[in-house]
Design a protein around this nucleic acid. Sequence first.
RNA 1: GGAGCCGUACCCAAGUGGCUAAGGGAGCGGUCUGCAAAACCGCGAUUCACCAGUUCGAUUCUGGUCGGCUCCUCCA
Length: 457
Amino acid sequence: MSLRIYNTMSRSKEDFIPLNPPKARLYCCGPTVYNYAHIGNLRTYVFEDILRRTLLFNGFEVEHVMNVTDVGHMTTDADEGDDKMQVAAQREGKSPWDIARFYEEAFFHDTARLNIQRPEITPRATEHISEMIETVQKLEENGYTYLTPEAIYFDTSKSEDYGKLARLNLNEQKQGARAEVIMDETKRNPSDFVLWFRNKPTHIMKWESPWGVGYPGWHIECSAMSMKYLGETFDIHCGGVDHIPVHHTNEIVQSECATGHTFVKYWMHGEFLLTNNAKLSKSTGGSINRLQALIDAGYDPLGYRYLCLQAHYRSELNFSVEALEGATAGLRKIYAARPENDPFANNETGYQEARKRVLDVINDDLGTPQAIGILHAYGSHRLWVEFDAILGLDIAKRSQPVEEALSEEVVALIEQRNAARKAKNWAESDALRNQLIALGFEVGDGPQGTTVKRKAL
RNA sequence: GGAGCCGUACCCAAGUGGCUAAGGGAGCGGUCUGCAAAACCGCGAUUCACCAGUUCGAUUCUGGUCGGCUCCUCCA
């Protein structure tokens, strides 16, 4: 079966047919780097990594771009808040650029620990200001903009199909559904959005533009950078579901009005991670929702990755420590599948049939939960390892007993324990075992005496 | 107010108009063990929030009720 993916634009699964096979051009909305990513953010990047790896597995040449949003919301008084790191950085007189670089590094550190492959290109918004200005100029030439003292706006009333992705019914939208949203009185339509903020000389991050000193609007960077690296029409654009009504809607209209043709062929969106049945946010979650916090608490980051893979990317996932521990234990079972017990050891036909079953469910809109169910049922180490190219769980590496030279201390403890057991001195024997466990080993007693294995998780 | 999603065993979570409603974890029983750990074997929803309807037949379709969530606002 060929690859099928769910396209938000059509609200249905479609065969994936790239514009220029074997190339598959993919753009993913990346992190805003003025704060740490939380595990909910990271879930979306896991989903996109599965997509990327599935494309590669199917033989496509992937060109994957993910932006780094290092501009916006970075005034001195913006984001007044509870993030200690940012507060500290500002108190120490660090620049927004320093802050952005710091969190960008933290982000890629987290994704690396989740075995998320780094996209081929990860452009920074601040390094593409001229491309953004050019895109806005095209829109201006094409007559889709208007100028106010505050900004140059995109006039959504000039586009007949504005909101087609989200199927917005603009007449039914309530303006400022929340009280704290400040309406700009100079806007002509509620759905109009800023392309470039002008006359902002006090803003820290600011650039010259044809409309005055200021900074770009929140959507233009993705249009400018995706089209620069992938062309004016490309295959797949990804992001979180929250991007459908505003960010991607605006990206589409500004891109298509700038170029005059289709922006993206397939739109894919990852659902939210919930805790206590509510979405994560900076204000309610705090630092406990960072990947580092899980690692500090002794959890393996790949246990979290595996938890994500057990739920479909288009379904909400309820995160809890209990769920994470369950997933980690399940991952341990995968690592424990022994090559010598492989059910397909002398059955290549059976292996190929099983392989096809697994690939079919993955190729059906990334059915990793079903794939994992099937893989568990087979219990084939070889099959696990082959599909680890997609799952990214380090199965080959982690399921091998680590060939490490045991320290003299450990060797001595093992010898003492063997002696104690031979002498049926169970009290000492148990004490020695506890010492070995404390050193991070799994201890087993076989016919040849005590054996020791470094804990995989 | 508008738009949309969800409700499957203790937890996470697949799935389908009709063969036994995946899989993992936890739990229980067993093999093994000095005892364990690990591993392996076995057991768990007569039932898919609730109520109607369509149907020969619904957990799966339709309507309603209850509960929860998301978006319309920077946000994965």
